[in-house]
């Protein structure tokens, strides 16, 4: 039946699982994750290199208003005769850039605040948690309206809204992941050896919450794109002649019966982008399991 070995194998170490080793091929054996990654790379590539392609200018009129797709303009034109294809490419770029850029800033702030909350003891922790609660409880659009009143509607308002939504979640997620790490024996041992808070953060906390943070960043970006989309759709965010996916849906909505592709195409693209980041986030979470190694 089974093989017989002459003597018990001496090597006892548990199989080195998850922990450190990353597969060389991203998301090996994870078709959904791979699909998401493919989609994401495709969209980012379009956003980055699309404008360099000979697809026309996103801001100059072709003189041909609300043309249907095909017919010289691959995706038709808008109400001012601007070609939609370059505008959508521009929109992808704008939406992804705003969401990614803001989320990266929110991540840096959130990781520092979350780790510091976990490290610094009860009072500071309480303060940081309550502060995020306050931001969290503010209606996003109220923040955006405030910013648009001060700075005028535009990119800044959309960015502020994205920041206000993604930061508190990031702080919470990081803090929740960091709290158990702070309790671990190895952190106490480092404290006893005289480690500064900064060192604890850098050497022990950050690497141990990294997996959680990476997954959360992907989710936050997808959420950020939705927020930006919503803001620009309502006219509080990105303003013409610039374009984001949300503002395109917003202006296209008026011509839904005449030229359905105008609103539909940017809408679908936004949906795909959100899906892509979510799938990648899920796959990252599956891969970098946040739970620390345990003995079998």
């Amino acid at each position: 039946m089974s093989v017989t070995f002459p003597s018990p194998t001496p090597a006892a170490p548990a199989a080195p699982s998850a922990g450190r080793r990353r597969p060389r091929v991203p998301f090996k054996g994870d078709p959904l994750g791979r699909f998401g990654l493919f989609l994401l790379i495709a969209l980012v590539a379009i956003g980055l290199f699309g404008p360099a392609l000979p697809i026309g200018s996103p801001t100059e009129s072709t003189g041909d208003r609300l043309a249907p797709p095909g017919d010289g303009h691959l995706l038709g034109t808008d109400e001012l005769g601007r070609a939609l294809l370059p505008r959508i490419v521009e929109g992808i770029r704008e939406t992804i850039l705003i969401a990614t850029g803001v989320v990266l800033v929110a991540t840096v702030v959130g990781v520092l605040a979350g780790c510091f909350a976990a490290l610094a003891g009860r009072r500071v922790d309480e303060l940081i948690v309550r502060a995020t609660d306050v931001i969290f409880s503010f209606p996003v659009f109220l923040i955006a309206i405030l910013v648009s009143v001060v700075a005028g509607p535009g990119r800044a308002a959309a960015m502020a809204a994205v920041f206000a939504v993604t930061l508190p979640t990031m702080v919470r997620v990081v803090r929740a992941a960091a709290l158990p790490v702070v309790e671990r024996d190895f952190v106490t041992a480092a404290e006893v050896a005289g480690a500064s808070r900064w060192r604890l953060l850098r050497v022990h906390l950050l690497p141990n919450v990294r997996g959680v943070v990476i997954g959360q960043v992907a989710y936050a970006i997808s959420l950020g794109m939705l927020i930006e989309g919503g803001m620009s759709f309502l006219g509080l965010g990105v303003q013409a002649p610039a374009a984001s996916l949300g503002s395109l849906v917003g202006s296209g909505r008026l011509y839904l019966t005449i030229d359905p592709a105008y609103a539909l195409v940017p809408g679908v693209v936004l949906g795909l982008a959100v899906l892509a980041f979510n799938l990648v986030g899920d796959a990252l979470r599956r891969e970098t399991d946040p739970t620390l190694e345990r003995e079998a």
């Binding site: 093989v3 017989t4 070995f5 018990p8 194998t9 001496p10």
Partner: peptide, 17 residues
Amino acid sequence: GIPPVLHGAFRGCAFVG
């Protein structure tokens, strides 16, 4: 010594070593 890790049926007594 250390406890064995078996990969199949063990012919003798696993504690023999």
